[in-house]
Amino acid sequence: MSRQRDIQPYWRPDFKIQSTLPDIKIVRTDFIINAIAIALMLIAAFTLLQSEYRAYSLHRSIASMVQSIGETEANNDQSLKESERFRKSAQSVVELQDFFRAPFTAHELLAELAQLKPTGLIFSRVMLSNAIIKQKGTDQTEAQAQMTYEINITGDARGLMVLTEFKAALQASPSLNPDGFEVAVDESMQQRNAKTGITPFRVSILLTPVPSATQSKGGEG
């Protein structure tokens, strides 16, 4: 680009006045300043346009999604209502399962004990009782109420070997070792009757729940 200069009053340039001298740099200052200004302008304009285009695209995308949500909203509400109905109905069934939750049924336990009883052992009393304990899970969460079960058998034994045999049978019985319980079998004896050779005994089976990681009840709403 040419530059208008003041009319030179001299018939030849005065080399002492530098501003009147021609620009003899390899790259002219005009060019550098204009180039920088245009480059900055282009960068700024590009940034602005990009930002505006992004905003425009997002607006369109959001409008499309809002429309899509609006169309499915009614179905979604219906699904949520059905889901809530399902949850409430399921709660009743879950409570039924909780109600019947036990490591064994009473009649099966009694039948199992009768089956395991060796000859030479007489039961006089069989008792099942339960208790509630508070136990923390392995993840050290809040203590939860859990059931422990105790089976007490009292009777007479004709010889101590029979009692040992019975204890071993109890420890080996799968029915008396349900999953999730620690089983401890303990026996105690009274003095043997010298005349009859009968020893009154008491066998105690204690089932304690094994601490486990806490499980949440139910699903998300």
């Binding site: 300043i33 204009n34 200004a37 245009i38 900055l40 302008m41 700024a44 304009a45 940034t47």
Partner: peptide
């Protein structure tokens, strides 16, 4: 002396302000 640079600078400032 630099009309193009001035216009460029003004556009730049405007764009930066909008951004």
């Amino acid at each position: 002396d630099y009309p193009l640079a001035v216009v460029g600078a003004l556009v730049f400032i405007g764009c930066v302000a909008v951004v």
